[in-house]
Amino acid sequence: MMDFINFYLVPGITLGAIYALGAVGVSMIFGILRFAHFAHGDLMTVGAYFALSAVWLLGIPALAAIPIAVALTCLVALFADRAFYKPLRQLPTIYTVIASFGVALIFRSVVQLFWGTESQVYSVGFQKPIVLFDSLRIATRHIQIILATAGITLVLHWFLHHTQMGKTMRAVSDDPALASVAGLDPEKTIRWTWIIGAGLAAIAGVFVGLDTDVHTMMGWNLLLPMFAAALLGGIGKPLGAIAGGLIIGIAEEICTYPFFGESLISPSYKSAIAFVIMLLILIFRPRGLFKGRLL
């Protein structure tokens, strides 16, 4: 039982937290800007590398570099929106979707150009896990990631339900035409969507780097589970995306647990779990768990 918690459940929740933070942005961008942002994974990579530079240049721990990474990634996202997505806003969304593939390639290539293609780590050395109740062993980084994600979820919930901009974002996501009739400013709402989406993507990128390593394909590789999480939670439902991320992360990890003496599936196939969940959701519950928008 303890093995299950130590080696499957806690890493599953950690992985789920990372998916969740990325999926919030995917879900909000889909809900408000009405397009699937395929550069979101690479935005995560950009955030992780900004933090890496801060770690190298300032000698601070990766967690302390998060505010710098968030600020710079938000600027990059706002620039990308102004330069690449805004000119396409009045055209059918497929133009913007294809453009986001191009932006993803630009992000990745720029990262490779400046930081190289080698994998990097924020810190070297072995961190002793925290031992609770004699047998529960949790890595410090896992505790940090899970607690930070829980805190972010609470703040996000408060923001969306108790601030004017949060309610505006939910209103635009519900019905953009009515929001415009109500006189709400769409461009301001879009800016805030990028700030929150990119900020959380940067945090997720740093968490991936903390949990494993930083490499240029890290964000692109996480795109499928992030989209699956956003669909599972319901498009345009940020808190649904968090629930979706956690479910997919946990499902991916515990599917490899030897419940009946053998793993349910081989660990090398665990990334297929997100794909299977995405297919099932699209077929049987297309509005997701939190009744989001239909695709």
Binding site: Q164, K167, T168, A171, L178, A182
Partner: peptide
């Protein structure tokens, strides 16, 4: 007030009223 789709369906009644004050 448009003819159809004239409320924000997932917002509460109070939030719908609040949205009217934002602009």
């Amino acid at each position: 007030v448009p003819q159809s789709h004239n409320v924000f369906p997932t917002l509460t009644v109070e939030e719908n009223l609040d949205v009217g004050t934002f602009a």
